[in-house]
Design a protein around this nucleic acid. Structure first.
Lengths: 228, 228
DNA sequence: CGAAGTCTTGAATATTATCAATAGGGGTGG
DNA sequence: CCACCCCTATTGATAATATTCAAGACTTCG
């Protein structure tokens, strides 16, 4: 299955996509301010497997994912690969001006991002108080996600890691049926497991009924119990 | 061995301790501004095992570690404990005003912290531009540390995790001889290993010569090779 | 249809967790 | 000052789990 980025190249009221998610830098701006931002902002399609940001380089941009998904990859000295996170619509990508990225960011599928100039954002932050607060809040969110990841990796067995990962995806994406835009290898590198262990664990979870469906990259979880 | 917090209760020019570390919120303030901050700032001793911040509660304070060390503890639903990080002199502790902490912070030894009122800091940030930038930078540092932790946990065997952990401590504390202010259980909960596995791994590393010394909580690493 | 990549499965090995017992160290009270 | 206790850490033996190497199945795309 192939997915497109959900955007036909000349969508008129484009920022509606972002605003709907209400998490982006723009969310608190007035239409007047929005007009100002638009001048240095750009919407870009990103091809599958394309590298948006390279490990070790500085990035003069801050991105917001509009559609699609990304992996954050950190290469270890010995050649192994650790995925330090995934980014989904509404998430921020980018470290801050003049800061060297400690991971690469690569698209998992055809995606769409909103690009801001760090320099301009910084300059504009002087006039609009809320922007820095948003960046601080962004940092907190990222840190929180990283800590959830730490908790997953701290769990000692594969089943728990995989289930927690899937629950995380459900929470992030909404809905019990999940399309995995990342490969098994990506998931394994995220969970600190070998590819084969991950695969085996998924089949086991399917057989034991902990997962309702498992068809390639489509997974369906058991619905959460409603609390009255 | 017991350690004190390196501070006799009425030290005169107290902030020198902080400033020397040049990492705190104050570092960029003028003496004039510093005087202003001092009014809502307090230096506090923290007893060993004392909880500075409780998981699930909001904290109206931001802390900077002056001396000693802390563990950040996250309790899992099933009763297990994950340590999401350690804090050493110069590190920040606290999430931001009106934000629920997702971990508890407990002193590993008699320590000393510098306490700021979040509300006041926020209010003051309106007048002193640099403060918010510091908080953003702080967030980046924390995130970076969390990702280093993720990389450690992603490593598949115990020896690597332990060695990487020790190297991290060397980098943080400086010097090849390291005093471990945390218990074996703390380290195990940080590394996602069982207490016994950690203990065995340490002895193995000592025997194989990957560690120069191992006497209780004192560890000595092999010096790094000099590059000419 | 064939080829390349991705994913699953199998069997043997290695590593870690678990359960249990012992050893070491610090502090307290006789 | 020594004996004792409690807490922390080490060590041992076995079971559970993950890795490794190898082969085969499934997809997707040209």
């Amino acid at each position: 299955m192939k997915r497109d980025c959900g955007f036909s190249s000349s969508t008129p009221n484009f920022c509606a996509l972002c605003d709907a998610r209400e998490r982006s830098v723009c969310a608190e701006l007035t239409t007047e301010e929005m007009k100002e931002v638009s001048q240095t902002m750009a919407h870009l399609p990103v091809k599958e497997a394309q590298t948006l940001i390279k490990e070790g380089e500085g990035s003069e941009f801050l991105f917001v994912v509009v559609s699609g998904s990304f992996r954050m990859v950190r290469m270890l000295e010995d050649g192994r690969r650790q995925i330090v996170g995934f980014a989904f619509p509404g998430d921020y990508i980018g470290m801050g001006e003049a800061v060297e990225n400690d991971y690469s960011v690569e698209a998992l599928e055809p995606s769409l991002v909103c690009r801001f100039s760090q320099k301009y954002l910084d300059e504009m932050a002087g006039r609009h108080v809320g922007i820095k607060d948003r960046l601080i809040a962004k940092g907190r969110t990222e840190l929180h996600k990283a800590q959830d990841h730490i908790v997953i990796l701290g769990k000692h067995n594969a089943e728990e890691r995989v289930m927690t990962f899937l629950h995380m995806l459900r929470k992030q994406l909404g809905g019990d049926e999940i399309y995995l835009s990342m490969s098994r290898q990506d998931i394994a590198d995220y969970l600190g497991l070998r590819l084969e262990t991950l695969s085996r664990t998924l089949t086991k979870l399917k057989k034991s009924g902990d997962i309702a469906k498992l068809e390639g990259r489509i997974v369906e979880l058991i619905p959460l119990a409603e609390s009255a």
